[in-house]
């Protein structure tokens, strides 16, 4: 009897390991930035070209930084949730509009002069927000994606939960699901809000 139990036990261990491996999304790479201060940047806002935003402006607040673009299909999926969340007054959401023009595969914008690209990005992003609703306190334009690199963005959408001291506490890779919002983001945000 014992000699059958040993291979059976080994087989079960193997099954458990394979099951864990199969249920993990290989595209979710844990970010080394969780627990670290937000990388600093200073970018023009989408609504007012003359106004600039930096993460330090949000000190003392718990907030979300959401990376989006109008060409991003998954952003469209997550957007209604963000809009209703913002309407309920959940958390301030800052949008990082990521490579609005040059990220669009259907558009060859490599030879566009910078000013034209900026204007086109503004127009496209604003139109999109008008059509789908604007959940953002404000959005900033990361035209060439360099701020995205600093935040370790490798797919859009991505969302960062940032605490009052400007430390990244959680990163959602891919669209925010109602489940992730209820079970991870909101409880953590409540806890962070109670911190001094």
């Amino acid at each position: 009897m014992k000699r059958f139990l040993i291979p059976l036990g080994l087989f079960l261990v193997l099954v458990i390991f394979l099951a864990i491996g199969l249920n993990k999304d290989p595209h979710e790479v844990p970010s080394p930035l969780v627990g670290k201060p937000t990388p600093d940047f200073r970018l023009a806002t989408l609504a007012e070209p003359d106004r600039q935003f930096s993460p330090t402006d949000m000190r003392g607040q718990v907030w979300l930084l959401n990376v989006w673009a109008s060409w991003c299909v998954s952003c469209r999926a997550e957007h209604p949730l963000l809009v209703s969340f913002a309407r309920q007054g959940g958390l301030p959401i800052v949008g990082l509009n990521y490579k609005e023009v040059r990220g669009d595969g259907g558009l060859d914008a490599k030879k566009l002069p910078l000013e034209e690209e900026t204007a086109l990005a503004r127009q496209r992003a604003n139109t999109w927000l008008r059509q789908h609703g604007d959940p953002y306190t404000l959005s900033v334009i990361d035209l060439d994606g360099r701020v995205g690199i600093d935040y370790g963005v490798y797919g859009v959408p991505e969302t960062y939960l940032i605490d009052k001291k400007g430390i990244i506490r959680f990163k959602q890779i891919g669209p925010i699901t109602p489940e992730a919002l209820e079970k991870k983001i909101l409880p953590l945000a409540r806890q962070l809000a109670s911190e001094s």
Partner: peptide, 8 residues
């Protein structure tokens, strides 16, 4: 790059 994207 490791600081941004991890050891991965």
């Amino acid at each position: 790059l490791v600081a941004r994207y991890g050891d991965f």
